[in-house]
Simulated scan of single mutants.
Amino acid sequence: MPDAGSTLPRRQLGRYLTEWRTRAGLSQAKAAQLLEMGATSLNRLEKGQNSRIKSRDIQAICDLYGVHDDLTSALIGLARQSNVKSWWHQYGDVIPKDFDVYVGLEAAAVRLVSYQPDLVPGLLQTADYDRALVQLAWADSTDAEREQRVQIKAHRQNIVTRKTQPVSLEVVIGEAALRRVAGSRKVMAAQLRHLADMSTRPNVTIQVLPFEAGFPDGISMPPFVILEFGNAAYAQAVEPPVVYLEGAVGDIYLEKPNDVSRYHQSYEGIRQVAWDAAASRNLLRQVAREHEQRER
């Protein structure tokens, strides 16, 4: 019988538990012995295979590994969410608002496919572009707090530029994202040139969906990211792919194969009518020049 709950928070929880056990210098067998838990049970927990997870077990594990209180609360929240069939993560609800579930999934992915109609994707944003957005989104924060957010974004971008096994990144960006000004036209010019430069990397594909393409699906698709985690032996997925939808009050994670397939189909339809990589690169540089000219 298939497990009743969502596999996504279980897998995320398993990754964190494995990481912190390793930090504590414990083998899986030794940790299980100290926890008075079967080694098989701990192994299933770390692989995200337990369908029912007890909060007290997670608390005991975190105590043994020396996990700090804030992260312990987040991991207990993940354990509770694992029993929910359709997973919707609302900040400040079960999981602490400062725990970014998506970032952990992003770091584990080997391929990211994204459609962003209005904004430059986060992994491709310059610091000044991101800073302009953070200034508005976190207006009540201090300058130091806002700058910390910018630095966190910059750190996330390492998965694209690292020398060893960089993530494969495929994005379609709406033309509106090129022309809508964040910060200033000078900031936009630099941002678009950065996109053009990044698109020359072998692991990065950037296409622009022009206004003239209309609505490929007959509807206005929201921004989305499809995260894929690679294949093991016999072409089996290491983990099932996930569709991420960011919301103003909460984030939605779709795991059902039919849902993921639907977003793959939508992306393919959008990609086919978008400009190809070379034409998109030329457009990025052209619009960058337009911003510079209007800045003078």
Rank of each mutant, 00 (worst) to 15 (best):
Q12R: 04
A288D: 05
P223A: 15
N203M: 06
F99M: 07
L123Q: 09
A132W: 09
V120K: 04
V243C: 04
G104H: 13
V160L: 12
L195N: 07
I58P: 03
E228M: 11
S51P: 05
S266F: 10
I76P: 03
Q265N: 08
N83Q: 13
K97W: 08
W87Y: 13
A190R: 13
K186T: 14
Y91W: 15
A177K: 07
A279N: 10
L284Y: 06
L136C: 12
D93C: 08
Y115C: 00
I53E: 08
T7P: 06
Q151F: 01
S168G: 09
D3C: 00
L17E: 09
Q90P: 00
A108F: 07
Y129S: 09
A60K: 14
R271W: 03
M221H: 01
L124V: 01
E212S: 15
L26H: 07
A196L: 01
N203T: 12
Q33I: 02
A29Y: 09
C62P: 03
S82R: 04
S280P: 10
Q12N: 09
N83C: 07
R156A: 08
Q207A: 02
H89R: 13
S41E: 05
Q265I: 12
I53V: 13
D140I: 09
A279R: 14
L195T: 05
A60M: 11
P241N: 09
A29P: 00
G92T: 10
A274L: 07
L283H: 06
D98K: 15
R10L: 00
P202T: 11
R262Y: 12
D63G: 04
Y244E: 01
Q165D: 15
D128Q: 12
E295T: 07
D128C: 08
R80S: 03
W138C: 10
S261V: 01
A237Y: 05
R149Q: 14
A232T: 15
G14E: 05
L112R: 09
Y115F: 15
L227R: 09
Q165F: 09
V249M: 10
L133E: 07
L133F: 10
S184T: 12
A248I: 15
H68Y: 12
I206A: 00
D130R: 13
R201Y: 07
V273H: 03
Y115D: 06
D93I: 10
G269F: 01
I58K: 03
H155C: 02
I252R: 14
R11P: 04
Q286K: 14
L169I: 09
S27A: 02
S141Q: 14
S184P: 08
R201T: 04
R56P: 03
R180W: 11
V172S: 04
D276R: 08
L245V: 06
R131F: 11
L13K: 07
T7Q: 13
V243E: 05
G5L: 11
G247S: 08
N43H: 13
L42I: 05
S280W: 06
S82F: 05
G174C: 02
K97E: 14
G77D: 06
Y253F: 15
W138H: 15
A213G: 05
G92S: 07
A74Q: 08
I152Q: 14
